[in-house]
Amino acid sequence: MKKKNLMAACALMLMAAAGIVWAADHIDAPAVSSTSADITDYYAFQSPDNNDNMVFVCNVQGLLDPAATQAASFDENVLIEFNIDNDGDNVEDLVIQAIVKDGELSVYGPVAPTVTGVQSEIVTTGTVSTAAVTPYGSAPVIGTENGMKVFAGPRDDPFFMDFAQFGEILAGNATGFNDPGSDTFAGTNVLSIVVEVPKSQLGTAATLGTWVEAKRKL
């Protein structure tokens, strides 16, 4: 925990020095920085394993060193919601809702939401996929249901950037990046939720509008 705090403190000092934060979405805003609802990254891509499937990844709680990773856990009051817009109005038509209770991940959907926007409720009428949260150091526990695969647990942070040097540039201490640069996120972990879903369950649009949200239980 101390190491995590130190890393967070270093990151905060960098932010202060830079006057701006630039990571993927790590510590992006004061209200969520270093909280259990802080999304660090979002990815959406065709499955490398199966062209008929799409993969959604949401990472939270970044900058975890190995000791902090061992102690880290998903917040059971935080819902991770993947939002999918099929008609270009930037309002979600489908949601995939992921939440951990008692060490088990449950993933609801893809399913039409009962409400859209700032608030959500879990929609239990569609597919429900479950998997035990994978403990640190264990092989991935993969849940399967209705063609879907789901995972929750600590992973290496896939994000890479010379964040430190960018801070130096913005602070006026450097005029450009180094070559080679240094990956500020090397050696750090995140808590990941990964969902693979058949494209046939995501509607018929050629292009999906997608985003991920962390929502806290009221």
């Binding site: 630039w22 999304i39 935080v78 608030q119």
Partner: peptide, 29 residues
């Protein structure tokens, strides 16, 4: 049913961190 309210969101990488001023980062989320 339990209701959940928005705290953080993300579409493309680094949007809030780069293009939103410090004072408005929470508003953007």
């Amino acid at each position: 049913a339990d209701m959940y309210t928005l705290e953080d969101q993300m579409g493309r990488p680094a949007i809030n961190t780069v293009f939103v001023t410090s004072a408005e980062k929470d508003d953007f989320n």
